[in-house]
Design a protein around this nucleic acid. Structure first.
Lengths: 368, 368
DNA sequence: TTGTAGGCGTTATCAC
DNA sequence: GTGATAACGCCTACAA
């Protein structure tokens, strides 16, 4: 039910005046920076060279390899660059040197808090070094993934990072043939294309089962996808359950895991099939949150009537009473690690280990 | 073996390691690596020209201005391009033509669902036309914003889009001096730098007050910031209240609006100051969600004991019982509109109107 | 430590 | 409709 109201009129003079009163334009200082000398910023390195009385190549070196230029000259050149606001043309640079300063980052889903955090962490490491992140979305679609990987050939980035791993052999080959550092994350396969910072989804599932065992639940269940990461978490969950002698009374496969509604429905269906379930492991926090809300709507008390455990460290999970217990990683840290490995690789250093694991932790709250 | 002909330099240690890391998978497959036609994709337009028996410029035209090339030749050229997987070098192209295919998009906060949706919408329009979105985050910080805007001088994108408006005069000047299309969004100031797709936050506030009036609430309150967009929403809220004869019994200013906890605390404080409040307008959905949870934690029934109204169309708001009433826009559509206006501008057309308004709607749910 | 020469791949310009 | 020529701005290679 959406009653839309009258807000579509063009702005009136009144709006304008009110706005001016309500939101005065902020200004930094009285000082104007940038084009301090009043002219447009120089666009070519020769202009700087002329001003400094040196050759263009010396300016280039002062900017890229300052240690190779004599102290005095370097200082003078950098001062002029600073004062005039000169900025290197990245296209000319990339064309001549074959080195782009763009790093492509692909997330499966831009709406995912954790993926965005990882990308942010990666950017935090790369941007201060002069690299720019170009972000794309694969939408969990193999077709889209393939398209984007093909567009990489055109884009010619310095490196590529994914929040996820590339499974299709053709795409793996295409990426490898780019001859640039490739970073995969968020899982722990034995054979990354190039580099990997990940965690074991199987371990995550096992951790879930162990947690249930430790809290004394016996009749446990799983809600999630049976493909991709969900399948791995389920595998680990089964292993952990078997090892601890727990009984998985239901494995509910859902097609969509993109909203809480999916979790609501799934829990309702699970309970209709098997009312005696004591604890449910949901393959992601969105599902878990939906399940939690559904349980409360049904008047169940958590964790006594039913325990719910999620996966992903989503921060909404913290807020919903009684708080969702969830397994996950520090995504921003994962991104930072990925960024620094990419950086090392781009600089030609050898990263100590092309595969790195990040730690899975369980955050215990009221839902279990 | 090494068909990375892109790099004409001798292989570095790095290359060797990369190849070594890559090998196991390729050999596991048993199949020879390489492209479908057995060779590496051509990297220069002359190679295509040679294959087609034409000059490079004709290939260039076939790709950029197909209508200027004779039917038969064009077909042949495009077929070869397709078959070989040739991809234009964007750096050479940008260098010579002065036209980049990169559009920079800055969001105030990558964690914001709505901002991400807008950027996605924008990308949906631009990407099919061969443009690439480069996403940056300003983190609601003027300093960061200034830094990023300066880096634009270096990046030389074809256009820039912001989820927000630029207030600092110095930054406005810097952007204007780039001489490229600039898109601001999410507000409705009197003088955008270049183009704008936005909505009136003042109208949003007014709509909130009108909604409360229509539902019969008399003693109403506001929770939010007193700066930026919050200030505008408050202004409208006051106007609407005055016009409807409602009594704003409290205006609670909060510093941080980044998490539900802020909303929880704010509502608790509000109630401790004035227990007779009937309805609260929260300046964003995160605050509103926190307030809603706090009200329920205190055992209050919504909307009878207290009504809560948010702003932003955040989809978590839909799920929490009894459902949060919220005012907002269609962010993806805003992004699409912004994208198509940017596109027109980049193509040299003048968009019919440089300022466009999107409609605010109120989605009515159980919380009011 | 600094400079000279030349080319990266494309497209603007002009000529045919 | 097509092609020859040159230039976009920078940096690699080599020379001094």
């Amino acid at each position: 039910m959406s009653e839309s109201s009258a807000a579509k009129r063009p702005p009136t003079i009144d709006d304008v005046l009110r706005l001016r009163a309500a939101e005065p334009v902020a200004s930094a200082d009285g000082e104007a920076a940038g084009d301090a000398d009043g002219g447009a910023a120089p666009t070519r390195i020769v202009e700087i060279a002329r001003l400094a009385g040196v050759s263009p190549i010396t300016v280039s070196r002062a900017l890229r390899q300052p240690e190779k230029v004599a102290e005095a000259k370097r200082r003078k050149i950098l001062e002029i660059v600073e004062r005039t606001g000169y900025a290197t043309n990245p296209h000319a640079r990339a064309l001549r040197s074959g080195q782009s300063n763009i790093v492509a980052a692909f997330v499966s889903n831009l709406q995912s808090q954790q993926f965005c955090l990882a990308v942010q962490g990666c950017g935090e490491v790369l941007e201060p070094q002069g690299y720019q992140l170009m972000i794309g979305q694969t939408s969990y679609s193999y077709a889209k993934e393939t398209t984007m990987i093909q567009s990489l050939r055109e884009m010619r980035p310095a490196a590529v990072m994914f929040t996820g791993v590339i499974e299709i052999e053709e795409n793996r080959r295409a990426l490898r043939s780019l001859g640039i550092p490739i970073m995969e994350t968020w899982a722990y396969p034995r054979d990354p294309i190039d580099m990997l910072v990940g965690f074991s989804n199987i371990d995550g599932g096992r951790l879930a089962a162990e947690h249930f065992a430790g809290r004394g639940y016996r009749r446990i269940a799983y809600i999630g996808r049976r493909s991709g990461r969900g399948a791995l978490r389920l595998t680990g969950f089964r292993e952990g359950a078997r090892a601890a002698g727990l009984d998985i009374v239901a494995e509910l496969s859902v097609d969509r895991v993109g909203s809480m509604v999916d979790g609501r429905r799934a829990l309702a269906e699970l309970l209709s099939r098997n009312a005696a379930v004591e604890a449910v492991f949901c393959a992601n926090d969105l599902l878990a949150t939906g399940a939690l809300l559904e349980a409360r709507r049904l008047g169940m008390r958590l964790p006594d009537d039913i325990a719910i455990l999620g996966f992903g460290h989503n921060d909404v999970a913290e807020e919903l009473p009684p708080g969702l217990t969830t397994i996950g990683i520090d995504s921003r840290d994962l991104g930072r690690q990925a960024g620094s490995m990419i950086l090392q690789r781009m600089r030609g250093d050898m990263p100590p280990e092309p595969i790195r694991a990040v730690e899975l932790t369980l955050t215990h709250r009221g839902s279990s």
